[in-house]
Design a protein around this nucleic acid. Structure first.
Lengths: 189, 189
DNA sequence: GTTAACCTTTACGTGAACGGTAAGGTTGTG
DNA sequence: CACAACCTTACCGTTCACGTAAAGGTTAAC
């Protein structure tokens, strides 16, 4: 509450020289930045969706930028794409593999081995793109259908304003308004 | 199991003349057609998302085409768009209003009143379009980002195949592969 | 009118995705 | 070194979206 610096604050990683000061974030900082809760982040970890880059001496979880980006992606997949956490798990590399992979990549200068790691990631990226694109397409179709229904309503409105009955002859769109009541082949919506 | 017609089968509505034979469907028929279960359909009804066009003498739920379309829309909103059932309720006209509206529309020949009903539906349609479009946009962005990450991986693969190290100098994409391990400003992904 | 296949309501059970709390340890500033 | 603000694990509770079973009534072909 005081205007002075708070007690248990962040933490700068002791960078060897004047390298980029890689701030490691504690769980609450990450949570606020992403609009998540510490609880849900721990839950994702429990499911194997991610694990913090490091732990402090006292076992505090410490996250780096790549962790935050991964979490942001997870959140988008959950909120925007509506995937379940288990589907997200299938889409992402599981955390164990992720750790092994990046270790392996940096420790091996062997191009053949590196090639293998990259083609592996590439396969995953392909899957992600395919799944996201197909979802975009389905949603695009829904949005299009909604626009069609809207246009129909506009046409009916125009018809009424032109002295008509406001009933359209063609196909019954989504029964937003009319749908049943009389038994004419097509109802006004 | 017999090749003969089953016992408790469908039901044709006694159409006055040779009007379009409006088949009313029982709950299981609707469910199979849409890939839902009777239970979930009843649940949606319980939440006020829809109600069957009619009930049989013995209280069987009977659905008409407009009901099926409405259910199909609900399912799409749930599966493809990932909305919760309560969000779907907000997007759709609630069933009570829907019944009142279509009654009102058919019983009133008054253009002014009809106009009101239509503008009302139009407002809802506008909301639906807006919400769906914004969701499409967010997903489009995600898909785009995924494609960028994929291209980066392809570039690294090409680099390796050209005798390079497979590390890219620019910005760190989603930490799909590399992300931490060394402390260089940008990691290979 | 029997009967198989369907339906009804009611109610309790379940998996997913967290929320909340308890009991206790850690951090960094004053 | 005291202390406020953070964190830890462990565990029980909750909401949503149904699944499942019980007990009984309905429908339509035979």
């Amino acid at each position: 509450m005081t205007p002075t610096a708070q007690p248990g604050q962040p933490a700068l990683v002791p960078t060897t020289e004047n390298e980029i000061p890689k701030r490691l974030l504690r769980i609450q900082e990450v949570a606020s930045e992403l609009g998540l809760t510490p609880r849900s982040i721990r839950y994702y970890e429990e499911l194997g969706l991610l694990s913090p880059a490091a732990r402090s001496e006292g076992a505090y979880r410490l996250y780096d930028i790549s962790d935050v980006e991964r979490l942001r992606f997870i959140k988008q997949l959950r909120d925007d794409a509506g995937f379940s956490l288990s589907e997200i798990g299938q889409l992402l590399e599981d955390e164990a593999a992720r750790a092994r992979t990046r270790q392996a990549f940096h420790e091996s200068a062997d191009p053949a081995e590196r090639r293998l790691l990259i083609t592996d990631s590439l396969r995953r990226a392909d899957r992600q793109v395919a799944i996201l694109r197909s979802k975009v397409d389905r949603l695009e179709e829904m949005a299009g259908a909604a626009e069609v229904r809207r246009e129909r309503l506009r046409a009916r409105l125009a018809d009424i304003d032109a002295g008509g009955t406001g009933e359209l002859p063609e196909t019954g769109g989504l029964p937003a308004v009319g749908g049943n009541g009389t038994r004419r082949p097509s109802e006004p919506a």
